[in-house]
Design a protein around this nucleic acid. Structure first.
Lengths: 219, 219
DNA sequence: GGCAAGCTGACAACAAGCTGACAGATCCGA
DNA sequence: TCGGATCTGTCAGCTTGTTGTCAGCTTGCC
């Protein structure tokens, strides 16, 4: 968990850092707008706590610039001026939450935690098992960074195996999952499907545990 | 123009829907907070009319959750309790406008229209995907700098594909988006539409990912 | 060695998607 | 109101990718 604190007052910054560190964050600090903009754009944080009154570049300007550049790290705005107009401006500029000063430290920690949780839920749903990566939004698969073209059924089959990679999946279960319980399908269809997947993925990715089922190989 | 109505009273919801439909909106409806949250987060509306007193999740909570998740669709709050405190709370939560009950239908329509106009003016009007550029306020398209004449439906279809260019869009979803969920339309209409678009755009712009959907080609 | 589980290449059936033609609907100017 | 132009949905026939089945094969286990 990495968190960036953007705050020019060294005393407040120190307080914030200590509190967040006590809650398990690795904290970094930027004291002015320029430094903040640079760090937020180049490093990968889980959350940013942003004060608005900053030297060199105003907090809102920094935020807008990040958002324009595609930085999606969740940002919590801190501000002494707690009017609702400013709140709306902050949200408008792309902030994820807003906390008016003065505030209790516990509340700050709770909000930053909530922000991180929410962002994790929103992230691109990519499942990874060793060198194998499945992106269920883009419907793409890759092996060791190399893209693999899969048909819909192949994709669903592989996704199911990756999701249950901690145990062998019987072919009867795959049949049930892929065809929604309709019968009239032979088990051999699954065998053929797995064979086609293996041809695309190469050996050593889908293992057969004879008598138990198929399983994605451990990294 | 798609509009989501969030209202638990079926009579009021029906009134609202009829009025907005008469003004040219495709209207969808959610009767509780959970459903509203889901629809607003996953579908692409031009405006949302949100009642505050809702089952399962309160209207304000839904709104806050949307804003926290980055949903920027303009929201008009409806409420029986018209105190200014509540108004501020609504704006604070990220609402774009506030209309106390009772209200005249004409006023509602006017405000929703204003909302949509404002949002259109504020949003980045030009969407770019590779050589393809769409100006959503002027409703013009160009490919490699050369202007392309599109019909209204073609434009909406292309805009939707460009907006979701990071993933394949199933033709069922296009059908739903373009016709606001009314059925009685055949999937083949989408195929014909895409064929017409391809004839204008040339090959290699709209790709078919068989079994997954259509997708704008990566640059 | 024998048996069952599992593999695989070939093939055929099927479904997804494409396209040109046509016709109903709508809009617009005269 | 009429006529023409444009837009858009439907249909039929076609192409192509996907997937189930079959038959014969290999592999592991008792």
């Amino acid at each position: 968990m990495r968190c960036l604190i953007v705050e020019d007052d060294p005393r407040i910054a120190g307080d914030l850092a200590r509190t967040l560190e006590a809650s398990g964050f690795f904290v970094e600090h930027a004291a002015d707008g320029e430094a903040a903009w640079f760090k937020g754009g180049t490093e990968d944080y889980d959350a940013i706590v942003l004060d608005l009154g900053l030297p060199l570049m105003d907090g809102l300007a920094v935020l807008k610039r990040w958002r324009a550049e595609g930085v999606t790290i969740p940002v919590l705005i801190l501000s002494a001026r707690g009017t609702w107009i400013e709140r709306v401006e902050g949200i408008d500029a792309g902030a994820d939450d807003y906390l008016p000063k003065p505030f209790r430290m516990e509340e700050l920690v709770a909000r930053v935690r909530a922000l991180v949780r929410r962002a994790a839920g929103r992230a691109a749903p990519v499942e990874v098992a060793g060198a194998l990566a499945l992106d269920t939004t883009r419907m793409t698969a890759s092996l060791a960074g190399r893209p693999i073209t899969l048909t819909p059924l192949e994709f669903r089959c592989l996704a199911y195996l990756v999701l249950h990679r901690d145990r062998p999946v019987p072919s009867t279960e795959l049949l049930e999952h892929l065809h929604g319980g309709e019968d009239g399908h032979e088990l051999n269809a699954i065998e053929a499907l797995v064979a086609r997947l293996r041809r695309k993925l190469g050996p050593g990715v889908i293992e057969t545990r004879r008598g138990f089922g198929y399983q994605i190989a451990e990294p």
